[in-house]
Design a protein around this nucleic acid. Structure first.
Length: 269
DNA sequence: TTCCAGGCGTATC
DNA sequence: GATACGCATGGA
């Protein structure tokens, strides 16, 4: 990772990276686009202003060199070679097109608890409303609430969220983590089927939410969330399953396919 | 007004 | 195990 420290912040050269495609593509919900080339957000309650300053050049402001290295590099998955990943999965023709269409996607290494909550909130919901609920959640607690903080709430206490029927699911997730009934650390390293099973003991966590928590919150790249868009992708191009070149990184392939189908192929019909 | 949004729990067969 | 239906909320 090449970078220099300037008065304005850290200037880093990052290949295969697009702010919109990575921070505003439905994998994270706390990033706010404040102008054409800048996003404002936080991770582990550390703030960041990140701007594209030219092709492949990004400014990290409102942060320190230490946090750049220990927080933002891992979070943005900057040590992973996405050119290599894209080259590998481009052995498949449709995948090649999807990679070319949204070539700046990166899989964020998000916090597992926050991702779990975010995707519990996401069910039968739209992205603007998901963002609103999470924003009210973090503002109310002045940070993303811990499992302990949420476990002490009743669904009624969370009515300010306007999360509807999902509030009770958040409380159940928090309580199961505090009781030890579910351990996100155990889930993180468990064989994928056991991991899915353990997550799905939480009320409001079904196959889709479990898969999203694994992929986006635990960097389990073999997790493959299937929503309506990916269902269409599979019916259209992969009726017999994903190609061999995607084995082990189905979740990353899914990111390219999701974006491709939503913003491009959906125009065909 | 009605439909829908990166689903899931429950009832019913 | 498959399928239908309700669910909170708010924007289109």
């Amino acid at each position: 990772m090449k970078y220099t420290v300037s008065e304005k912040g850290i200037i880093a050269t990052i290949p295969d990276f697009d702010l919109d495609e990575t921070l505003d593509c439905g994998q994270a919900f706390r990033w706010e686009k404040i102008d054409e080339n800048t996003y404002k957000g936080a991770y582990l309650d550390k703030p960041l202003l990140i701007s594209k300053i030219s092709d492949g050049q990004f400014l990290f402001a409102d942060t320190s060199e230490q946090d750049f290295l220990s927080v933002w590099c891992p979070y943005l998955d900057l040590d992973t070679d996405y050119s290599e990943i894209k080259s590998r999965i481009s052995a498949d023709d449709t995948m090649k097109k999807a990679c070319e269409y949204a070539s700046g996607i990166r899989l964020l290494r998000q916090d597992s608890w926050e991702a779990l909550c975010s995707f519990i909130i996401s069910q039968n919901n739209n992205i603007p409303r998901i963002k609103g609920i999470i924003s009210r959640l973090t503002e109310h607690f002045s940070h993303f609430p811990t499992p302990l903080e949420l476990s002490r709430c009743t669904p009624d206490d969370l009515s300010f969220l306007r999360a509807g029927f999902r509030a009770k699911y958040l409380v159940d997730a928090a309580q199961k983590i505090i009781s030890g009934e579910v351990s996100l650390e155990r889930v993180r390293t468990a064989p994928i089927d056991e991991a899915r099973k353990e997550l799905m003991t939480i009320k409001g966590v079904g196959p889709k939410v479990a898969e999203c928590a694994l992929l986006y919150g635990m960097y389990r790249t073999e997790a493959f969330p299937v929503d309506v868009w990916i269902k269409r992708v599979m019916e259209k191009w992969y009726p017999d399953g994903l190609p061999e070149c995607c084995v082990g990184i189905e979740g990353i392939a899914q990111q390219y396919l999701f974006h491709y189908m939503r913003t491009f192929a959906s125009k065909e019909v």
